[in-house]
Write a protein that binds this DNA or RNA. Sequence first.
DNA 1: GGGACTAGCAGGG
DNA 2: TTCCACCCTGCTAGTCCC
Length: 683
Amino acid sequence: MEKNETLSGDKPRPWQSYHTVYTNAKAGMEGVDKEKVQRIVYETSKGSKYFENEEKKEALLRQKIENMRAQSAKLSAADLSHYQTVADRRILELEAMRDLSRIWLHVDMDAFYAAVETLSNPSLKGKPMAVGGLSMISTANYEARRFGVRAAMPGFIARKLCPELIFVPTDFKKYTHYSELTRKVFEKYDPNFMAASLDEAHLDITEVCKERGMSCGEIAEELRKCVNEETGLTCSAGVAPNRLLAKVCSDINKPNGQFVLTNDRMAVMTFISSLPIRKIGGIGKVTEHILRDAFGISTCEEMLQKGGLLCALFSHSTADFFLSVGLGIGKTDTPQVRSRKSISSERTFSATDDETLLYQKLADIAEMLCADMKKGGLCGRTLTLKLKTASFEVRSRAVTSEKYICSSEDILKYASKLLKAELPISLRLMGLRLSHFNEDKIGAPSDPTQKTLNNFIVSGDLSRKNLDDPKSLGLDINDQHLMNNMEGSFSIESHELQHYGIRDPLASNNLEDLNVHHCTSTDSVEAEKIHEPSSNKIADKVITKDMAGEVSQWKESGLSLPGQLEGGSPDRMNQVIMHNEAVFSSEQKDELVWVDDYKCSLCGIEMPPYFDEERQEHSDFHLAERLQKDESRIDSRTSALRQRSVQKDHISSQSKRKKRKPSPKEGGHLSIDMFFAKSNLNF
DNA sequence: GGGACTAGCAGGG
DNA sequence: TTCCACCCTGCTAGTCCC
């Protein structure tokens, strides 16, 4: 956090630079003392792990903004002129696509959950109340909002802001019932209305206005009255030529009000010109911060004025979105089918590193997800494990199965493998998400076996047996899956490992590992037995064994390898290949030849001819192994290996053909980078 | 170059 | 004194195969 100290010698106000969403203008919060809210939020949060993580994220954001400023400053006059032309052309194209023929109405129920609770318990009326608990509140009534209490705020902070705040637990059954009542009303005005959530909907009222000869304002008025009669609740409405603007309009006269923006280009441009960008759906805290601090953009109109810069520094689709915001252009169509893309379940708990407990919680989540999937009759192929560490760092690990899964056993089986690769770890949240549903045409390739990493790896083997097209053999997906499982285990594992960009085993400085790598399968069992998390050295060795086992299990399970194994931890993977290769080295002959120009005669590892550098390294490995053997009784062994290692380091450093994807832990990329910046800016 | 895939994040309710 | 959810969509980068 930056220290804020005024020139006049006022006391420091560090909370002023703590950027929280809780002080943003929201309906019912107009008279709130923002500085007081900011100070209380800051003081309540300060020192917590959450706070520390927020500071980290803020620092990254500031760095990102600095980078964008620097990139912007680097643009020459010619560049700016070029991108201004690009922006002007795109603005013309977007303008040509402007559709003023439809009338959209956005309905937003006023403090929905809180209003429903007050309806069922009138004694709450007039008192500050929030729906939720001490950890998080879902919504607050207008009495509570006057204290700065609002949705998505932790309850303990809300209580600091308003000590007399009443907490009411959420009751989704009740909200769903009232939501259905409102939807029955919406249907009368637009049978194809789009429900955005339990308390929000978009309605195309073009036809109903024509049919009934009423103005859009009259229709909105009538609809709101009807909702109130049916439910006893109030709502607000916005009417505009598109959904983007209608949503902005519904917020203007909240609560229990409405605002109409006419279908006229001039009216739209006037409306949008001074509109703060934060009012637009899709522009949140981070985007607002970047646009304001890096480009000086605060209003929608300024999006157009700085269009050249936006085109130069953001991706095509992002720049397009910004320009259309500047023009007040939004969607006017009604999508025919909106199918869900994924389903997930997640739970927060007290942070723990107890592996038994973590697996138990994972099993619970798998059960919950399975139950939800059964309700929807869904089966999916991609399972994503979401983790939030004790320090609030969020990670996700995904795996794509060759078959569709929906049973809790299958979900847990794959989820456990993903979790295992992350241990040891202290977590406060785990979540499971399944996507690539069976009805998802895009996600269900005709030959799913072709697309997974595992299959690519195995196909190397299959192709040489003319088996790369399972269909040509009359095999279905399951047959192919089975066939993969039946492949000879070691050659494939080795091939896999090579494919993951495994470098020279000698590059490892841990020469002690060489001893471990010669252990037999019996040693493996012993290694498991002596596994002690408190002993790093032993744990490392066991991990080596575990990882080898994991690779085998991954293949057996018919899954592609998780990212963590694939690229995130090359050292660990180095250890795995060292182990496997060393086991085979017991059968080695003196000279290495590539059998069929593919297979190592010494250890059986498979490597295509074009893996020239990897082959060289592999050959060096066997050479080193021979040296080691020859000098096994001489103390100079270690120094010889070190020498080889140094040589190999040199060779490896020149090898850039296959780039390893940096792991997030290595800070290889920044989120905002990925989200916004173009990858190939050539000025 | 396009598609599939993993990983990560922003944003909204 | 300690405490910051859950669920979903959509977009991005990077890697790899075809």
